[in-house]
Design a protein around this nucleic acid. Sequence first.
RNA 1: UGGGGCGUCGUCAAGCGGUAAGACACAGGAUUUUGGUUCCUGCAUUCGGAGGUUCGAAUCCUCCCGCCCCAGCCA
Length: 578
Amino acid sequence: MKNSGIPTLPAAPAPEPSTDSGPSNFIKTLIEEDLRAGKNDGRVATRFPPEPNGYLHIGHAKSICLNFGLARDYNGTCNLRFDDTNPAKENAEYVASIQTDVRWLGFDWEDRVHFASDYFEALYGYAVALIQAGKAYVCSLSADQIREYRGTLTEPGSPSPYRNRSIAENLDLFTRMRAGEFADGSHVLRAKIDMAAANLVLRDPTLYRIRRLHHHRTADRWCIYPMYDFTHCLSDAIEGITHSVCTMEFENNRALYDWVLDNLEVPCHPQQIEFARLNLTHTVLSKRKLIELVEKGFVSGWDDPRMPTISGLRRRGYPAEAIRTFCERIGVAKRESMVDIALLEHCVRENLNASAPRVMGVLRPLKVVIDNYPEGQVEEMTFLNHPEYPERGSRMVPFSKVLYIERDDFREEAPRKWFRLAPGREVRLRYAYYVTCVKVVKDAAGEVVALHCTYDPATRGGDSPDGRKVKGTLHWVSAAHALPAEVRLYDNLFSEADPQACADFEACLNPRSLETLTDSRVEASLATAAAGSRYQFERQGYFCRDLQAAGADRLVFNRTVGLRDSWAKIEKAQQRDA
RNA sequence: UGGGGCGUCGUCAAGCGGUAAGACACAGGAUUUUGGUUCCUGCAUUCGGAGGUUCGAAUCCUCCCGCCCCAGCCA
């Protein structure tokens, strides 16, 4: 620092702890306490345990960022584990998509992909051990009867008539369950805990059920499948997980998680910690609802750019880094919350503003003829790829007599504070010339079909030597040089902030969530845009070349998110005041 | 009328007995060849409510109120 002669300031305060691991939260606090107490030999091991029964969404991203983030922050590990104990709902397509999505989000499980189904044999052994300890029994009540015996929230349950079968009989029955001697649903294995427990989860929970279903990994080797509560805690213990992070709805299940581990000889006893799942305005994040949107055709598929799925957001053009930033900013706590989707969009704009090259795209073209521009002349104008970073270079864009500008940039009758084009008004064409509107051409229906302007040759590049100021700057494209493109404008899937609260959630769907523009024009440099590459169409928003349509004969761009639009706000306020 | 959890700005969220961080949103203003970006400024005398303890309470105690989860052979 140069000596400015300014008196020395008091010593600077100690630097804040490094922030690159993100803000703290109650889980980090807890882990730090464990570390200080020397628990788990200072080891931190987490896991992300999806059930492969659907595509991952932004809510899962919160959990992924949390679990992998914890491992990163404390020099630990995070496993990817598929909780695949219910073959009725799970399949290999989901397994594949989940791996793609976690990787795309930027996380690496190295060689630690696991499947609960890999533990089926071990789990069976644990079940046998429980039976031998007199802590589990085969129950031959029907599902309906089990429910009746369970009691209610306020009344205790009553013991199953099979509760006191001998260990030998239980062992025999359980062996035969595995051997396929019994029909589906005829018997289950239950833990013998307490039918009067205030926590319903502890009223002799089912551990195994008979299901003759083909499993995507174990094929037809098993006809009995373990339940979540039995599987999850043991899988955690087998993998040496230290902190088993899950969402709040599993809080009641923690008692059972602990019971199983306390009543079996296991390598370790991980700690289950619950946090609140993410809710986002104007969308739904329940797998059931998401599946419904796909199956009823309200969207084109799991990766429809309107979907809150990772694959949808990816196709929409959301950078993985922006999603990670979002997950960091929303924090981690236990209270139920509803995050404004505006925060997600903010993170996306913030990321794209810095990274996306600027480009010209006219969404709804309006023809403009420059009357005093020489017929047949073409000038190459210099456009900056990113005005804030001149080092990112520039490119040449052709200018000619016939151009397209945005329809929205012209008004026959200029409202108050209108900076854009109107009859007699002068504006700047970005990086080109000042032009003045001298004539409006309409068709028989009175629709404006073209504009005639004059240009000021002295303003080449967009600056006027006489210091004359112009308030509006418009983007444009040369009619003869631009490329036709299809542009898809996306908006919130639901018009209501909380679609869950809608009596009929289908009625809350936003009818304008997708608008397809088939006659847009983009600058020629976009011809070679890679699938998935992102640009800012100046003054419009951020767009991404569609992943699916990239191979087609025409250019297709998806609007990731629009730019903030303060003119829209001004106009809205004017209408309100009127 | 059972058990578990949660109530701090419009929305998230710090705070852990010493006198309410931050972000988004919103509202002003400055700069601007994107009405973008950036930059200033404003935005909870009060922490669900009522009592109490204390020199001092969002933080401790008591009672009350509200919201969420649990009665799958789902996860």
